[in-house]
Design a protein around this nucleic acid. Structure first.
Length: 470
DNA sequence: CTATGGCACGGATT
DNA sequence: AATCCGTGCCATAG
């Protein structure tokens, strides 16, 4: 157990507390917008391009961790925290002349920008804002979160306008983007393949009438539903599997370096990154990314100017000033909480981070909250909407650290994968029992379902690894 | 008759 | 207070 006694930053006022809470629940993407909006609307806030490395006090330019410090990172400690690194966003905050060595294969950048560039030509000027709004409101998978009618209202557009733009976006490069879900995404991609094969019509019928069965690979039932010979149905399903992508956004974000196929859970830029020297032993290094490049602070000139002024203007100035310093404190508070959270997580779950899902020790937010000495809801918010990159390169949601059943599910996957003869749920439960995992038979079934593993009876021949879905 | 999936309840978690 | 999760019971498919 790791006790942390850093109480240097505690909530000062209820307003502070409230705002810290709301900031804490934000992902970096969201926080970034919030910060930029705040800076734009508050002259007392100042965003500096340069940063000072907390380690060696030298000036840093643009993005990346301090090159000096990251190489000098202490080797004797189990956990090392690097200075918060910024998002590597091309076109963000106007990079200085001398861009630090960019060895990374150009981070798969903003999906929104990528799409907007394609659409630039055909997009009507009055639709530009709408398109940008839609793209920014997509969820992590690239699907719509809000109904078109809602978006129309939010942007003051007409419904037909929204639908027109949606159609354009969904037919742009990562085809199927900005649709309502995997099914709609697949249908859009199918539209684009019209005429590229006799299977297209049948594939469409499968998506329309037998989508659930497709996920289960229940080909016989599919054949019945679309009223086609089983062989053809199977072919069409294979066609869908080979040529279409139910999660178009994933393909885009993963375009950089993904072990390809190793895991379908590809997220966007992580909020936190954990690295390790050379995949082997060595200290785990944790970086908590900052939402914006540069340093945010209360503009000292503004503060100075506001002091002596006692005139009419001063009221508004002091309001700005208070709001600015409150905001900065809230951000600091957020950073602090995130840092402490990660310290505990990395210390407790080092095995999980290095060796994989099976070594995740069950842990609840409540326990962590108790260790740090904050309210449980604080941890809940801190964990929400964040993603973390592991040394493997896998990017997972931070909430996975609190998945009670992950290790068991992983073990089940393993058992099923290894055993020559299909094990029934009861038998699996028995094996797990012997290993000290007390799980009911019914629960094994549930986990199986989650992992997309077919029931024993249907497992006779080697089935394709189903896409981890519902 | 056995293996599964559905429904629903109670307790834990958030 | 709202949700999520593990389980038991029961109907059903094989």
């Amino acid at each position: 157990m790791l006790q942390i006694q850093d109480h240097s930053l505690r909530p000062l006022t209820t307003a502070h507390l409230a705002q810290t809470m709301s900031l804490l629940a934000l992902s970096n993407q969201e926080l970034r917008e919030k910060v930029l909006a705040e800076v734009a609307g508050n002259p007392a806030l100042e965003l500096l391009e340069d940063r000072i490395c907390p380690g060696c006090q030298r000036h840093l330019h643009g993005k990346g961790p301090c090159p000096a410090c990251s190489s000098h990172a202490p080797q004797d400690q189990a956990i090392v925290f690097l200075s918060p690194r910024d998002f590597a966003r091309p076109g963000n905050g106007r990079p200085l002349e001398e861009t630090p060595p960019e060895q990374e294969p150009a981070a798969p950048e903003d999906l929104a920008i990528h799409v907007l560039q394609q659409l630039a030509a055909e997009l009507l000027p009055e639709d530009r804002r709408l398109a940008a709004y839609i793209l920014s409101s997509l969820d992590e998978e690239g699907f719509l979160q809000d109904a078109p009618a809602y978006m129309a209202r939010a942007t003051g557009s007409t419904l037909t306008q929204v639908e027109r733009v949606l159609r354009m976006i969904s037919h742009a490069d990562p085809a199927g983007l900005a649709t309502q879900g995997p099914r709609q995404a697949l249908l859009v991609q199918l539209d684009l393949l019209e005429g590229h094969g006799a299977l297209v019509p049948l594939a469409r019928r499968i998506l329309e009438t037998a989508f659930a069965e497709l996920g289960r690979r229940d080909f016989d039932r599919i054949a019945v539903l679309v009223e086609a010979p089983a062989a053809q149905a199977r072919q069409a399903a294979a066609f869908i599997h080979d040529n279409l992508n139910p999660y178009p956004a994933r393909a885009f974000w993963g375009s950089g370096r993904q072990p390809a196929g190793s895991d379908p859970n590809v997220y966007h830029q992580p909020d936190i990154q954990i690295t390790q020297q050379s995949d082997g032993e060595g200290p785990l290094m944790v970086e908590i990314f900052a939402p914006v490049a540069g340093w945010l602070r209360v503009n000292p000139l503004f503060r100075q100017a506001a002091q002596p002024a006692a005139e009419g203007m001063s009221e508004e100035w002091t309001r700005h000033l208070e709001r600015a310093s409150l905001f900065v404190k809230c951000l600091q508070q957020r950073n602090n909480t995130m840092r402490r959270l990660m310290q505990i997580l990395v210390a407790e779950q080092a095995e999980f981070i290095q060796k994989g899902d099976r070594h995740l020790h069950p842990m609840t937010r409540a326990k962590v909250a108790a260790h740090i000495g904050v309210h449980e809801s604080t941890i809940s918010r801190a964990v929400a909407h964040k993603s973390v990159a592991l040394p493997n390169g896998r990017i997972i949601p931070l909430t996975r650290f609190f998945d009670r059943s992950l290790s068991v599910r992983e073990r089940i996957k393993e058992l099923v994968g290894q055993e020559p003869q299909p094990l029934t749920d009861d038998e699996i439960a028995a094996v797990l029992h012997k290993e000290g995992i007390r799980v009911a038979r019914r629960t094994v079934a549930k986990y199986r379902a989650i992992e997309g593993i077919l029931p024993a009876r249907l497992r006779h021949r080697r089935a394709l690894p189903a896409p981890a879905g519902l």
